[in-house]
Amino acid sequence: MRPLILASLLGATAMPALAQEVNVYSHRQPELIQPLIDAFTAETGIAVNVAFVDKGMVERLQAEGARSPADLVLTVDVARLGEVKDAGVLQAVEDETLTDAIPDALRDDENQWFALTTRARIVYAHNDRVADGEVTTYEDLADPKWQGRICTRSFTNDYNVALTAAFLAHHGEEETVAWLEGVKSNLAKRPEGGDRDQVKSIWAGECDISLGNTYYMGAMLKDAEQQEWAESVRIMFPTFEDGGTHVNVSGMAMTASAPNRDAALQLMEFLVGDEAQRIYAETNNEFPVKDGVDRSELVASWGDFTPDDLSLTEISDLRPQALDLIERVNFDG
């Protein structure tokens, strides 16, 4: 049976359960994981059916309950991993291959989800208007020297909520509120758009720096319209004053129902293998989670950094409090 890509919505018909297959609900667009699916099926003969569920994944899994055809979920952020776990629709996977490949900080402390790739939350800086070494820490973004020079997407977006949760873990509530207020006072304009829109604003002269995920650089360089934006900036890796550079993840988890558990576990183990790690990271311009797997040439060109060693479980647990602080200071207002 050939792999099948299904673009499905919340109320779509369930996928058929056939022998030797794995059913995946994915937040990540099918074309971004298709090379992995093809490689896995070629190696094992197991078909993989992928349903792209952009919204309502938790609600869908809850509604389907024990009858859900889904074996695995693939997500694009620790916030979504946390939401799926909190909904009680996952099961723990105790597997030596997974725990040996994935560092403790990059998997759930109860082994209900596992990171597959990482991306850094970095600063895009204008090539001419920002000097080398001018951006060193996340704390520094609240310094008045940046007044009117920062662009960002909404801080209620999952990526910025995760960054704020990490700041909260490092500094506590009082300092986090002060930091949010300081960054807000330095904004060149009201938060809007996505990470790439902020780079466009830098290119247009509306601001000098912005927060963004590393992989957007790769996406912009491959886009004829956006290439000029990307070439106007460079990536800078800030750190926390007492830590490293904040990273987020794409990840996987096994559903509580998992009708094809053995085949699903084979896919999970495949995804943390050297070749799959290389393919997945290169396809998405991200960093492999497994030690010893080389970055793509493009990603390596952005330079080295020291990832923060905070557990992503801790960051996920602090998300609700971080979002509350963001809304308390009316960051986007």
Rank of each mutant, 00 (worst) to 15 (best):
L163W: 08
K222W: 01
L187T: 07
C151T: 07
Y215Q: 05
T164I: 09
G182Q: 09
Q227G: 04
I209E: 01
H246T: 07
P238R: 00
W146V: 06
G218P: 05
R149Y: 02
E192T: 13
G172A: 14
K184M: 03
G172C: 14
A165K: 01
P191E: 11
P191V: 06
M217N: 05
E241L: 13
L180I: 06
Q147A: 15
Q226W: 15
R196A: 04
A169G: 15
S154Y: 13
E173P: 01
H171Q: 14
D242F: 06
V249P: 01
S250C: 08
G205V: 10
W146C: 09
E181R: 12
Q227F: 00
A162E: 14
K145F: 11
T176E: 10
A178I: 09
G244A: 05
E228G: 10
K189E: 13
R196P: 01
N160Y: 13
V247D: 08
W203D: 01
F155T: 11
A165Q: 04
C207R: 05
E192K: 08
A224I: 08
W229N: 10
T214W: 00
H246M: 15
G218Q: 07
Q226S: 08
A165R: 06
N248F: 05
A253T: 12
W203C: 00
P191Y: 13
W146P: 09
K222P: 02
T152E: 06
G193C: 11
D223M: 04
R190I: 07
M220Y: 02
G251F: 13
Q226V: 00
